[in-house]
Amino acid sequence: MKLGGFLLLLSGWGIVLAALELLHGGAVAPFILAGFATEWVGLAVVARTHSGRSEDNH
């Protein structure tokens, strides 16, 4: 789960880099925003996996 979250973070960045390299004109901005959104999903997953661990460590 944690690994999946970090992979989503990297994938989001990959989408942004790919959009910058491969696309032109107006198509770039939506893909940058899509990459940004993917990263937020990844961040939420990573945070959630760590949040469960904190409750165990009291």
């Binding site: 960045w13 940058i32 990459g35 940004f36 990263e39 961040l43």
Partner: peptide, 10 residues
């Protein structure tokens, strides 16, 4: 935003 995605994603 490209800078922020680099910070969060890399």
């Amino acid at each position: 935003i490209v800078g922020v995605t680099t910070l969060l994603g890399f």
